[in-house]
């Protein structure tokens, strides 16, 4: 089956991002396809590379990056939600006149149309949120 994944909550604050990761990983391990993982609301914070959790805790951001690399996942962060919350890639930082960017490896920033498209193209869109 082809899944689309929507992550609506931030890392560490809410279990949703852990559950989304575990679901995605399990789906892949069982031979399913992940069409796209879309990060919205505070979920965009799953994609900042400046995250530094304590050493004895899971690294939620790196975990997505590694899973993405292993399975060639399309990890998409919503641009409007990201701009509100201070998440920028190199292009956006330049465009907005900011002195830095913070997007993590393997993530890309794009529009909400990517979420709708995931709903259309996937057999199931699974929402992880509050």
């Amino acid at each position: 089956m082809k899944f689309g994944i929507l992550v609506n909550e931030g890392p560490y604050q809410h279990q949703s991002s852990d559950s989304a990761y575990m679901f995605t990983k399990a789906a892949l391990e069982n031979g399913h396809e992940i069409y796209r993982v879309f990060f919205y609301h505070d979920g965009v914070n799953n994609g900042t590379r400046l995250t530094v959790p304590p050493q004895d805790d899971r690294h939620i951001v790196n975990r997505w990056t590694e899973l993405g690399k292993e399975h060639n996942l399309d990890l998409v962060v919503c641009i409007a939600a990201a701009q509100r919350r201070g998440l920028l890639d190199e292009n956006e930082a330049k465009r907005q006149g900011k002195d830095a960017n913070n997007i993590a490896e393997g993530f890309r920033i794009s529009g909400l149309g990517q979420l709708i498209e995931a709903g259309i193209q996937s057999d199931r869109l699974v929402v992880f949120g509050d």
Binding site: N8, Y40, A80, A81, R84, L112, G113, L115, I116, I120
Partner: peptide, 19 residues
């Protein structure tokens, strides 16, 4: 919370997809 506002943004963008 921001859910209502950001949900409305999804509905408006989604309208362009003629679903």
């Amino acid at each position: 919370t921001i859910y209502a506002l950001e949900s409305l943004e999804v509905v408006l963008i989604g309208a362009a997809f003629e679903q």
